[in-house]
Simulated assay, not measured.
Amino acid sequence: MREWIPMSTSPKGRLALAAVKEFGARPFDEVTVAELAAAAQVTTGALYHHFGSKLGLYTVVREDVERRLLDRMEGALAASGPESDQSASITSALLVGLDFSVREDFLRILGDPPAGADQDPLAEMLSRAAVPTTPVLGRVLAAAWRAALSSVAEGAEPEHARAAIAALRIDPTTSD
């Protein structure tokens, strides 16, 4: 459950909105605290007060954006039903996630692995979707999906990224 409800007019809310925009468009390391504060029309002290650090702010917005992504992808998996082709179900979920990320301009924040995190919720969700369950497959699929997002961030056409994701096939008869 959220600890706070983001109000876009509050300094904390403006920082969160600025962070989503900046981290969505540029890699974590390229975004500065000063740029985030300026975009939110607050002081850098406000960022440290509300989030402790740039990484703290990034973590809050990353978790929110990633949760929205996973909700959509899990919905796509559930809509496929238990009797559907596993490869097609996972591919459908990956495409739903790609379309969402492109539409919302979350290319960098979701295209990069989570900064400063030990866990990767996307890889874990994809591992659970695979039968048999395999942690390596989830990491491989997450890396391929992120590579497609990164390609779009670097100028590739979204349709080319979609075609690359659609070309992935998962063979449930093999395991790592």
Rank of each mutant, 00 (worst) to 15 (best):
A117N: 02
R67H: 11
T133W: 01
V140L: 15
A40V: 07
L137V: 15
E30V: 00
G52P: 06
L57F: 10
D120G: 05
G81N: 03
F28D: 08
Y58R: 08
A19D: 11
L149C: 03
E22C: 10
K21D: 13
A123G: 03
S53G: 09
G56I: 13
A25H: 04
D120F: 06
P121D: 10
G116D: 06
A115Y: 01
L110Y: 03
R108M: 15
A25R: 14
A117S: 14
T91V: 15
A25Y: 00
P121N: 08
Y58A: 06
S89D: 09
E35N: 09
R103G: 10
L107Y: 13
E22M: 07
K21L: 04
G45F: 13
L141F: 11
G45Y: 10
S53Y: 07
L70G: 02
G45H: 14
L149R: 08
L110D: 05
V131S: 14
G24H: 04
G97I: 08
F23K: 02
R67T: 11
L17T: 11
M73P: 03
T134C: 15
R62E: 13
E83V: 07
V20S: 09
G24S: 12
L95H: 01
A18H: 02
V20N: 01
L36F: 08
A39T: 13
L141H: 05
G138E: 04
S101L: 11
V60A: 13
L98E: 02
A143S: 14
G52K: 04
E63D: 14
G45D: 15
K21A: 13
V152R: 00
T43R: 15
V42S: 07
E124K: 10
L110W: 02
G24W: 08
A25S: 14
D29H: 14
P27K: 04
G75E: 07
K54V: 06
H49N: 06
G24T: 08
H49G: 00
T133S: 13
F51A: 09
A40Q: 08
V61Y: 02
L122R: 09
F28P: 06
V131D: 13
D99L: 01
S89P: 01
A19T: 11
T134V: 09
D112W: 02
D29Y: 03
V20M: 10
S101K: 07
A18K: 03
V65A: 12
G116V: 12
R67N: 02
D118C: 00
A46C: 03
P27D: 12
G24A: 10
K54Q: 11
T91D: 00
V60P: 00
L77R: 03
V61D: 02
F100S: 10
A93L: 07
S127C: 09
L107H: 09
D85G: 05
T133M: 05
I90V: 15
S151V: 00
S53E: 06
G75D: 06
L55A: 15
L122W: 04
A76S: 12
A117W: 02
V136T: 12
R67A: 15
L17A: 14
S150V: 04
A147V: 00
M73H: 03
G116L: 12
Y58V: 05
G52A: 05
I90H: 12
A39W: 01
V42R: 10
A117T: 01
S89I: 05
L47W: 10
A88C: 01
